[in-house]
Design a protein around this nucleic acid. Structure first.
Lengths: 129, 129
DNA sequence: TGTTGTACCCTTACCTCAAATGGTACATTA
DNA sequence: TAATGTACCATTTGAGGTAAGGGTACAACA
């Protein structure tokens, strides 16, 4: 499996990583149980900060595409195929689109919606990055 | 009715205006049919840009607290009491809070939610400010 | 000892947006 | 003519966010 980062691509580096690994799973070049390069190794190969690669891995693990096994390394998840299929981001977008439509229908201005959104995001407790 | 702008108040000027006028209605010092100072006049009195006052008036008219009658001026709306009671911003906040909770429950990170929100806001068509 | 993932600290660059301001212009009407 | 609300053009300031980087440190294990 070959991974590449295109600087000219407006897509952030970590997103390019996750997209390519998911493609590798869907395309059959990455199979459940396969070992992935370590965070530090991949970061060095791509001239990226380990934190950037770690972020990509973290997202992929949440989506059940890969599985981190601590000191043993990181591997393709058993349900990687399913995990690579459903698109959480698209679902989030759809969900927000519907809510926004309701708010606008009620007469709320975009400024009001944006400010209320910012407040709501900061007043609730979160865990992830 | 006396209106004041407090520079030290983090609340934006137009919001201070709308809040005070709504308070005037709820407190009985402003009654349906009462004339309000013109946008330019109030702006000059408060050392504000007419656009800032106009923004406050626009919000108040949407909430049915005041009514603009073109060249005749602006007046307290007949349903001003009801309009000053219900809080659209609070409802918007509650609605967004619920949606955000659902998205977070699904595992979405705050970054993902914020980015999706920004996209959703920009991909839909709006009218108001 | 060296490597694994992970969790903190802090900093930078870039971007978007809200808020407010300045100016000009319009139709309407007393 | 003067005043009304309104609609454009534009700019500036400040806040807050993402993405990414640099560095240090930890427990677990071969």
């Amino acid at each position: 499996m070959q991974v590449t980062i295109n600087i000219d691509n407006p897509e952030p580096a970590f997103a390019q990583l996750t997209a390519q690994i998911k493609q590798g799973v869907l395309g059959g070049s990455l199979n459940p149980g396969d070992a992935l390069p370590s965070i530090r190794q991949l970061a060095q190969d791509l001239s990226l900060n380990p934190k950037t690669v770690a972020k990509a891995y973290r997202m992929l693990e949440r989506d059940q595409v890969i599985e981190s096994k601590g000191y043993r390394g990181t591997f393709i998840h058993q349900n990687a195929m399913a995990g690579s299929t459903h698109d959480l981001a698209a679902w989030v977008h759809e969900r927000l689109t519907k809510t926004i439509a309701v708010l606008r229908d009620a007469g709320a201005t975009d400024s009001e919606i944006r400010i209320a959104f910012g407040n709501a995001m900061n007043q609730q407790i979160s865990k992830g990055t």
